[in-house]
């Protein structure tokens, strides 16, 4: 009997090592719960890029985006025992990031409201200084110029908050309507409606690019 247990333990120990990169999000979460720091590092590795960019497109602030992305992971780490696999981990962490970003946007609005400078110099276009620090040449630089990219970024950031996250999640992060509804805690109809309205605003702001493209098409 004791020998059987020993052999069982041996088999468990000698279980073929699976690379963390091959594990699903839920498996990594389970491993993290058991104290596997490398599993958590793999989760961070998988999501830090998209999460940081998601927040960056919401705020337009590089430092703040890094900080809030890290804060999202910190919250995941300390609430990992409460996480249940009822829905996708990506939905879970995007929801945390969204809440942090929306909270930051509200703080900024309050600061702007109470700031005399903000009251007298508020300019919808110039308010958000959009300076992406990524200087690497983009593979599609020829198709979409840097100036165009910046304009796109400004157009997204200047969206009303209620349209911003749905648009980013749908058009950039390529989430399904269902995922977006779950992340934002909205109904499916409301989610679709907000995306549609957000696209309408962006269509107007990016009109000149669309017209030229249409001309080219025609």
């Amino acid at each position: 009997m004791a020998l059987d247990r020993f052999e069982l333990e041996q088999r468990e120990v000698e279980r073929p090592a699976v690379s963390h990169s091959e594990l699903s999000d839920h498996d990594l979460i389970d491993a993290t719960r058991e104290g596997d720091e490398a599993a958590f590092a793999e989760i961070v590795s998988r999501y830090k890029g998209q999460l940081t960019n998601y927040i960056f497109r919401m705020l337009g602030d590089y430092e703040e985006s890094i900080d809030l992305a890290q804060e999202s992971f910190v919250r995941v780490y300390f609430a990992i025992d409460r996480y249940h696999s009822g829905y996708a981990f990506s939905t879970y962490i995007y929801r945390i990031a969204t809440n942090l970003a929306i909270s930051e946007l509200r703080k900024r609005k309050r600061r702007k409201l109470y700031s005399l400078t903000g009251l007298f110099s508020y300019d919808d276009e110039s308010d958000e200084v959009y300076q992406p620090p990524d200087d690497r040449p983009h593979p599609e630089e020829e198709v979409v110029s840097r100036e165009m990219r910046e304009t796109i970024g400004k157009a997204i950031i200047s969206l009303p908050d209620r349209y911003k996250a749905p648009i980013i999640l749908r058009e950039i992060e390529e989430k399904t309507y269902e995922e977006i509804a779950e992340i934002l805690g909205l109904g499916l109809g409301t989610t679709k409606s907000r995306i549609s309205r957000g696209r309408g605003i962006l269509r107007q702001r990016l009109e000149r690019y669309l017209e030229s493209d249409t001309d080219e098409v025609q």
């Binding site: 961070v44 970024g153 058009e171 950039i172 098409v217």
Partner: peptide
């Protein structure tokens, strides 16, 4: 076509790379 191009444009919104010390700073915070 126009709506498809709008979708393509939006996908080209500026992107950033997390800093190299992202993981280390995160672990320090934890």
């Amino acid at each position: 076509e126009r709506e498809e191009f709008l979708t393509t444009l939006l996908k080209h919104a500026p992107a950033i790379d997390p800093p190299p010390d992202f993981d280390r700073t995160l672990m320090n915070k934890i």
